[in-house]
């Protein structure tokens, strides 16, 4: 799922970047939404990392 989400953000970034400069300059809401999507992937990745870290921690301690 993370891969799929990241793919989607990558595509949105490319689409946004392909728009004319003047149009991009006034599209702050859209760039915020784009950043929000990347933040969501980052948050999921962080949670997964923390979860896997927690699972492996007791084994390391044995």
């Amino acid at each position: 799922m993370l891969r799929f989400l990241q793919e989607r953000v990558n595509k949105s970034t490319k689409d946004f970047d392909a728009r004319p400069e003047a149009e991009r300059a006034t599209a702050r809401t859209e760039s915020d939404t784009l950043a929000g999507k990347q933040a969501r992937v980052q948050d999921l990745m962080r949670r997964l990392a923390a979860k896997l870290g927690n699972e492996s921690a007791p084994e390391d301690g044995r």
């Binding site: 991009r24 760039s31 784009l34 950043a35 933040a39 980052q42 990745m45 990392a49 896997l52």
Partner: peptide, 20 residues
């Protein structure tokens, strides 16, 4: 995984500033 998340965190800030 955390390193990857760190990179994504940087990119989130880039996108917020329209560095696309």
């Amino acid at each position: 995984l955390h390193e990857l998340a760190d990179g994504m965190q940087r990119t989130t800030r880039d996108l917020r500033k329209q560095r696309t």
